[in-house]
Design a protein around this nucleic acid. Structure first.
Lengths: 324, 324
DNA sequence: TTGAAAGCGCTAACAG
DNA sequence: CTGTTAGCGCTTTCAA
């Protein structure tokens, strides 16, 4: 933006001090309503916009928050990003997004690059060790999404109970050989879901069959389908819908009918009715998670007697066509 | 970031003037190589990072570019975003992303909010009238993606030829009733693809069947499938893969076999082998588009004898399972 | 090749 | 309720 008038010009034009103009923006309560209005009117007329950088220089706050995700193209993240931005917008904040490719080294780099420019960090599905995260959180306001580290504010989108329900459903349906296909091994979600599945299996006296889809891609799912078939499982739970989708594709190639020959339950509910049969899954309130994360960030000040919060959002089992 | 040393502290520590430190970053050519190295070493040691805001205040450049997209969750955009960020990173720039929900009013708002904070704007699939875009481009460096406005730099990901090829393929296969399902009516891509399809149809002496999926969603595609069936079409081209996917689902519900009863060609190639049968489509080099857009932005200065550029990236037809 | 000095546009005490 | 003043951390002439 070129040729924007400065606060001094606007003040001169109005015959007031620059600080008065400043206060009209930063603390209007200090001014007479009429003064504020006069300032705003003149600002609109001259096209005055406060210079963010000057402001940031003096206040030390940029009005920008950083949001770090492993993969912007994974359907899990767009709703989070979207609603984080919406929430930020309402608070007059902007959001920088960084994509780490699910790589811890790149995550470190991105955090380093972002940190000096932002007032706070939201890190989703971090692949970093707890220690690193703790260090970061000490330096600047940090909120984690789907990572459960003590002393750091975090919002957890959890599928624990819904997963157990899903297994109950399978068991009730007479399934005894149930497989779980894991996702990215370093992700918290994977650990959490794995634990949940294991416990639920045990509670039914079942030995689970545990398989891998480490990159968490569709192709990974296709590949895993061979192992599922080999294992003799009649029901399979996937780490997420993307993998579930790959499994479905793999099963179809092998001539298996879903759900007659094999039942499938996904997680995250990012695909819903777009598969055939429509994919049973676990809906997560990702939008809410994004929103809550930025709100939590606002209430997070490192050092200053922080009230660190742990917010857990439970998902819900949605039974559709793939579970019979 | 708290407690970062300033340029003055670093200078003192080194026994040089602050301006020397400054030059080590902004114009190292002015300094002895050895001096530059000394500065950098000390900076690394003390953890000095130049304050972006102070810098921006004086230079008037923030090192941030704004990227505006209609829908971050549409698989068309993540690759663009991703690679725009990568390219920006290489140039030492950051990217602000804004989502407009495909709404022109919101687009205006977002541009207004972003403008004062960024050095330039990349607007993807803009829904604004040409006039508005021209005005914006006069005020600040602007690059358009998939919008063809004179005097503004733009990168166009085009499916024109590939679409014609697709129709040739259908005609060769004996199809005479071919439908095209349109996407968002205000989008440039839709216009462009519609024109291309119409011309190709005409060149074969065919009357096309033109249907709508205005929101461009999966559900829209499902809905459109009824009309396709009704029209008696034996081959259908969809504005994009998402709609094509919806069509496939709709056809299946109606018991039609793909490609035996009906052939489908998508566009954008965002789904590829994840459908069954795997979706024939038109691959677009979205990654390149994102990268080129930021490079073009660097070479775009409004007023200053701008070399406005029009870069067109042609897509390629990929025949898979849905076209027989 | 480096230093000194003058601000960039704004906010935040401190007065009044 | 409003004005005065002193910088925030950096870049950029201008000298040396």
């Amino acid at each position: 933006m070129r040729n924007v008038p400065t606060i001094v010009q606007l003040a001169k034009r109005l015959g007031v001090a620059p600080s008065t103009v400043s206060r009209a923006y930063t603390n209007p309560g200090l001014l007479r309503t009429e003064t504020v209005q006069r300032v705003m009117a003149a600002a609109a007329e001259l096209g005055y916009v406060p210079n963010n950088h000057a402001r940031a220089l003096i206040t030390g706050k940029s009005g920008v928050i950083g949001l770090i995700v492993p993969d912007i193209a994974n359907p899990f993240f767009p709703p989070i990003i979207r609603h984080a931005q919406l929430a930020a917008e309402e608070l007059g904040l902007s959001v920088f997004i960084a994509d780490t490719d699910g790589d811890a080294d790149r995550e470190v780099t991105m955090i380093g690059r972002l940190s000096p420019q932002v007032d706070g960090l939201i890190i989703a599905a971090s692949r970093l060790p707890e220690k690193s995260l703790t260090t970061i959180a000490q330096r600047m306001p940090t909120v984690l999404i789907n990572r459960d580290v003590d002393k750091i504010s975090r919002v957890l989108v959890s599928a624990t109970e819904a997963l157990a329900e899903g297994i109950n459903h399978f068991v009730r349906g007479g399934h005894t050989r149930i497989a779980y296909v894991e996702g990215p091994p370093k992700s918290w979600s994977n650990m959490q879901r794995l634990t949940s599945v294991t416990q639920a299996m045990n509670s039914h006296g079942l030995d689970g069959i545990f398989l891998q889809a480490p990159a968490g891609t569709f192709t990974d799912g296709v590949d895993a389908s061979a192992m599922v078939v080999e294992s003799g499982a009649t029901a399979v739970i996937a780490f997420d819908d993307v993998i579930a989708h790959g499994l479905m594709s793999g099963f179809r190639e092998r001539g298996l009918r879903i759900p007659d020959d094999i039942c499938i339950l996904g997680c995250d509910d990012t695909l819903a009715i777009t598969t055939f049969p429509s994919l049973s899954s676990i809906t997560l309130d990702l939008a809410k998670a994004g929103r809550i994360a930025v709100e939590a960030l606002r209430n997070t000040q490192p050092k200053r007697g922080v009230i660190e919060k742990r917010i857990e959002l439970e998902g819900n089992l949605v039974l559709r066509g793939t579970t019979g």
